[in-house]
Measured scan of single mutants.
Amino acid sequence: MASQGTKRSYEQMETDGERQNATEIRASVGKMIDGIGRFYIQMCTELKLSDYEGRLIQNSLTIERMVLSAFDERRNKYLEEHPSAGKDPKKTGGPIYKRVDRKWMRELVLYDKEEIRRIWRQANNGDDATAGLTHMMIWHSNLNDTTYQRTRALVRTGMDPRMCSLMQGSTLPRRSGAAGAAVKGVGTMVMELIRMIKRGINDRNFWRGENGRKTRSAYERMCNILKGKFQTAAQRAMMDQVRESRNPGNAEIEDLIFLARSALILRGSVAHKSCLPACVYGPAVASGYDFEKEGYSLVGIDPFKLLQNSQVYSLIRPNENPAHKSQLVWMACNSAAFEDLRVLSFIRGTKVSPRGKLSTRGVQIASNENMDAMESSTLELRSRYWAIRTRSGGNTNQQRASAGQISVQPAFSVQRNLPFDKPTIMAAFTGNTEGRTSDMRAEIIRMMEGAKPEEMSFQGRGVFELSDERAANPIVPSFDMSNEGSYFFGDNAEEYDN
């Protein structure tokens, strides 16, 4: 993207840094990872977990959730003011799984939030270390993106479920800051804005008074975040219109849905970061690795190297396929839920299948599930090659597409044709070009129609051997075009429920 120079890199967003050079960025990201790792080690000690239990991804998720809940100030305040039966607002906890007599047992633990905050700050040299908290939120978000298709949420806001490739980060909490905003897809931002506008339509006082002023500035800020994701002048001009509207209503909703559809071809720039579970960072720190000293990046080879040398386990339900569970977590670790499966298959070195073909449910185990038949197995999170994460949407291309997802959002900077089903997408653009945004709409449609099938995206960008740390010898991959490109292809993934 041309304006790259004016933006802070995501590592800076990730670490609240002012302008830093590459070495400083690597050190501050490393410091953040160190903090998460030290916190995780301490929690495993508190909970008396064995090494194996500490490497269980379900335990990692519970521990991450506990610290996120302990620092969720708004919710904590709300819980104190609106006490609900049987919930102690000062405590947080969740299921911890232990191996007892050759069987997995679930144990519900409860801790004072104050105590968890103390352990977290102690692991982070006394700081609140917001960057580390956001990092864990993005890992949870990436896992949700890989596990669930947001059909219901899309339909509720009037969008087409086939636009799911635009929904990265749709389950990120509001408090995820600049680093969170960077990884949100165009569809996620559109959905947040539509929800806001709908509230304004239904509630006369939404934009009024002292609160209304705050609401208005939040609305304009979200519009600017979305505008910054678009790469064409016409899309940005249309966002200006939406932002400046005196009284946002149905016309703005129409414009936003139009823009979301246009992003299936004229893709937005959305950041991709490899955020790993805390149970990967903990053992690495415990083994003596100093992330701050060595430096770390979320968008280069580092996460690949770390996963190459990590042992992570997962509980497996009786009829689940461990290899499929591994694929789910591998995609989440690489922030690749909406990437082209052919690119992923090449990088991973084994075939990556669409969601609907995987015999696996989510990673988390519900409290009512029976533990008797639970097994555990090693997650295979290694890769054959590594590639640089991208934040450009890439230019655009036609490809055989599917009944489910009709476009992709690249996660890796790797040369390819970008699949999208042009006739299906263009069919949504018939007729409606009147109104105050008509010239911009016409211009956007013209650009979409001009998108050429034979153009290559990320020209000359390749993948790298894991021994090639400096990215000196790019390998331009070859793809098996007979395979499906979309992950949520004609899909039956479970729906995400809060």
Rank of each mutant, 00 (worst) to 15 (best):
S3M: 12
S3V: 02
G5L: 06
T6D: 01
T6Y: 00
S9V: 01
S9C: 01
Y10K: 14
E11C: 12
E11P: 01
E14Y: 03
E14S: 02
E14R: 03
E18H: 13
R19C: 10
R19F: 12
R19G: 00
R19Y: 08
Q20Y: 01
T23C: 11
A27N: 10
A27M: 14
S28A: 14
S28D: 00
S28Q: 15
S28N: 14
G30Q: 15
M32A: 01
D34G: 10
G35V: 06
R38Q: 13
F39C: 12
I41F: 13
Q42W: 07
M43Y: 08
L47I: 12
L49P: 11
L49R: 11
D51W: 00
D51R: 09
Y52T: 15
Y52C: 03
I57W: 01
S60V: 10
I63V: 13
M66N: 12
M66Q: 13
L68N: 12
L68P: 10
A70T: 14
A70N: 08
D72H: 05
D72G: 08
D72N: 07
E73F: 13
N76I: 14
K77C: 13
Y78T: 01
Y78K: 03
Y78N: 05
E80V: 12
H82P: 00
P83L: 01
G86F: 01
G86W: 02
K91V: 02
T92I: 05
G94N: 11
P95T: 05
P95G: 15
I96M: 12
D101A: 12
D101M: 04
R102T: 04
R102G: 13
K103S: 10
K103W: 03
W104L: 07
R106F: 05
L110R: 08
D112Y: 13
D112I: 07
K113Q: 13
E115V: 02
I116G: 07
I116R: 01
I119Q: 11
R121L: 14
R121Y: 10
A123W: 07
D128S: 10
D128V: 13
D128E: 07
A129G: 15
A131S: 14
M136D: 01
M136A: 12
M137C: 04
M137K: 14
I138G: 07
N142T: 04
N142V: 06
N142I: 05
L143I: 15
D145P: 05
D145N: 04
T146H: 04
T146N: 15
T146G: 07
T147M: 09
Y148R: 02
Y148D: 08
Q149P: 04
R152L: 03
A153K: 04
A153V: 09
L154V: 14
R156M: 04
R156E: 10
T157R: 04
T157L: 01
T157N: 06
M159D: 09
M159L: 15
M159A: 06
R162D: 04
R162N: 06
C164V: 15
C164N: 13
S165T: 14
L166D: 10
M167E: 03
M167F: 07
S170A: 10
T171V: 11
L172C: 12
P173V: 08
R174C: 02
A179F: 10
A181Q: 15
K184M: 09
G185P: 05
G187Q: 03
M189S: 08
M189T: 10
E192F: 09
E192N: 13
R195P: 11
R195M: 05
M196I: 13
I197R: 00
K198M: 12
R199Y: 13
G200V: 07
G200I: 08
N202F: 12
N202D: 01
D203T: 01
R204M: 10
N205G: 13
F206M: 08
E210C: 11
G212W: 06
R213D: 09
T215H: 01
T215F: 04
S217L: 14
A218V: 13
Y219D: 11
E220R: 09
M222V: 01
C223F: 09
I225L: 15
K227S: 08
G228Y: 04
F230M: 02
F230K: 01
F230L: 15
A233V: 04
Q235M: 05
R236I: 01
A237C: 14
M239A: 15
M239P: 01
V242E: 10
R243E: 07
E244I: 11
E244A: 09
N250H: 12
E252A: 10
E252K: 06
E254Y: 09
D255P: 10
D255S: 06
I257R: 00
I257T: 08
L259K: 00
A260M: 12
R261C: 07
R261F: 07
I265Y: 00
R267W: 01
G268H: 11
V270D: 08
A271C: 06
H272P: 03
H272A: 04
S274T: 15
S274N: 13
S274K: 02
C275P: 04
L276F: 03
A278F: 11
P283W: 13
A284Q: 06
V285K: 05
A286C: 09
S287L: 01
G288A: 13
Y289M: 13
Y289D: 08
D290M: 14
D290L: 05
E292L: 15
E294R: 12
G295P: 10
G295C: 10
Y296W: 05
V299D: 05
I301V: 11
F304A: 09
F304W: 01
K305S: 09
Q308C: 12
S310V: 11
Q311C: 01
Y313V: 05
S314P: 06
S314A: 14
L315H: 04
R317S: 09
P318M: 13
P322G: 07
P322N: 08
H324G: 09
S326I: 13
S326N: 15
Q327S: 07
V329S: 06
A332K: 12
C333Q: 10
N334T: 05
S335Y: 06
S335D: 07
A336P: 00
A336H: 02
A336L: 15
A336W: 00
R342Y: 02
R342S: 13
V343H: 00
F346Q: 09
F346E: 11
I347L: 15
G349R: 06
T350L: 12
K351L: 10
V352D: 04
S353Q: 07
G356Y: 11
S359H: 12
T360C: 15
T360Y: 07
R361L: 03
G362K: 06
V363K: 03
Q364K: 05
Q364D: 00
I365F: 11
I365V: 10
N368Y: 02
N368V: 13
E369I: 10
E369W: 04
D372N: 14
D372E: 15
D372I: 07
A373R: 14
A373D: 02
A373N: 15
E375F: 14
S376E: 02
S377T: 14
T378A: 14
T378M: 11
T378L: 06
L379V: 13
L379Y: 11
L379F: 11
E380S: 02
S383D: 13
S383W: 02
W386M: 04
W386V: 09
W386I: 08
T390C: 12
T390P: 12
R391C: 04
N395M: 04
T396L: 13
Q398S: 01
Q398A: 09
R400M: 06
R400W: 07
A401V: 01
A403L: 09
Q405D: 03
I406Y: 10
S407M: 13
Q409T: 15
A411Q: 01
F412H: 10
S413M: 09
R416C: 11
N417W: 15
P419E: 11
F420E: 00
D421Y: 10
T424V: 13
I425T: 15
A427I: 07
A428W: 02
F429W: 04
F429E: 02
T430G: 15
T433P: 11
E434W: 06
T437I: 06
T437R: 01
S438H: 15
R441P: 05
I444W: 13
I444Q: 14
I444T: 14
I445K: 09
R446E: 15
M447W: 08
G450V: 06
A451Y: 01
A451Q: 03
E454S: 09
E454F: 03
M456L: 12
S457Q: 13
F458P: 01
G460T: 03
R461P: 02
F464M: 00
F464G: 02
L466M: 14
S467M: 14
D468W: 00
R470T: 00
A472I: 02
P474N: 01
S478E: 00
F479G: 09
S482H: 03
N483E: 05
N483F: 07
E484T: 14
G485E: 01
Y487T: 02
D491P: 01
D491N: 14
A493M: 10
E495G: 10
Y496A: 13
N498T: 13
